[in-house]
């Protein structure tokens, strides 16, 4: 078909065909290291820094991975397209039947190994503190998921229980500036506890209690919902996270006689620092 007349000399000469790939691979290795190390001045690639201590690190990790992915993917993409276009059929000659090139083969084994070693290293650096839990957290909340709603209870004050089903959109109140430990479980099937602005999710499972810590650093309101398929009303299993200053949090928590009172108190103490949408539209956080 596409018999484009092309200068066959340059097309098949081995010297010109091998050099670009070697050079390109070298460039990649050079380019990646510093970019992964410094996550600043790089776009967010679809996410933002988040509002917890861990989510800031996750944000950097995401940037590093995206940049690496774009370089590696872009390089491979261009190489595929280049090879397909550059070596399109020109005539009926049989090209040189090269099958092996030890150097190239070693390079495309070793370089990916180095890259993923780097990715794994940074993964561990971010992951370890993210999943670590402290011994005596200053705040605690027990989250129980059920078909199709949530119960938030606070061991600090057993009278405070916040329960809501489907679009009742129960509020999970958390302190800012202080570590809160979440005890997550489920009464029936597997549910997904996900907070986008925390860049975090975890399964709520029957028979398993998962513990994790958040240290929130922004006041705000974050609309979210169950993410793991849990039956008929999965797409309507909402909840909302509200973060308020730690002093207000403890003051409200100890002075309330019910979940409703706690929520009312938390809503009163929170200054209108943030832009608030209607409950069903989600909330937007302003980053300083």
């Amino acid at each position: 078909m596409n018999d484009h007349a092309n200068t066959t000399d340059s097309a098949i000469a081995p010297a010109s065909t091998r050099r670009p790939s070697r050079k390109g691979l070298g460039w990649i290795a050079l380019a990646i290291a510093p970019i992964v190390l410094s996550g600043c001045q790089i776009p967010g690639f679809g996410i933002n820094e988040g509002v917890t201590e861990s989510s800031h690190k996750v944000y950097k990790l995401w940037q590093g991975f995206m940049v690496t992915g774009l370089i590696v993917g872009g390089f491979t993409f261009l190489l595929i397209v280049y090879a397909a276009i550059r070596y399109r059929r020109r005539n009926n000659e049989i090209p040189r039947q090269t099958q092996y090139n030890t150097l190239v083969e070693v390079l495309y084994t070793v370089i990916p190994t180095i890259i993923v070693a780097g990715l794994f290293y940074f993964t561990i650096v971010v992951e370890n503190p993210e999943v670590a839990v402290i011994k005596n957290p200053p705040a605690k909340v027990k989250v129980v998921a059920f078909q199709w709603g949530w119960r938030f209870s606070y061991p600090e004050n057993p009278k405070v229980n916040i329960v809501g089903q489907t679009t009742e959109n129960p509020e999970l109140i958390m302190p800012v500036g202080e570590t809160i430990q979440v005890d997550l479980s489920s009464l029936d099937v597997v549910h997904g506890f996900y907070i986008k602005e925390f860049s975090f999710s975890q399964y709520a499972q029957p028979g398993v209690v998962n513990k994790f810590d958040f240290k929130v650093d922004k006041v705000g309101e974050f609309q979210t919902q169950c993410t793991q398929m849990c039956g008929l009303y999965h797409s309507l299993m909402y909840f909302k996270v509200k973060t308020i200053p730690a002093s207000d949090y403890h003051q409200c928590l100890t002075s309330s006689n019910s979940g409703d009172e706690f929520v009312a108190c938390a809503n009163k103490t929170t200054p209108a620092l943030y832009h608030r949408n209607t409950a069903t539209q989600g909330a937007t956080v302003h980053h300083g």
């Binding site: 065909t17 491979t76 190489l79 595929i80 090879a83 397909a84 070596y87 059929r89 020109r90 000659e93």
Partner: peptide, 13 residues
């Protein structure tokens, strides 16, 4: 895959 195209006569069937 890229190496197999490299230096060949790629026919766009």
């Amino acid at each position: 895959w890229i190496g197999s195209m490299w230096g060949g006569q790629v026919q766009y069937t």
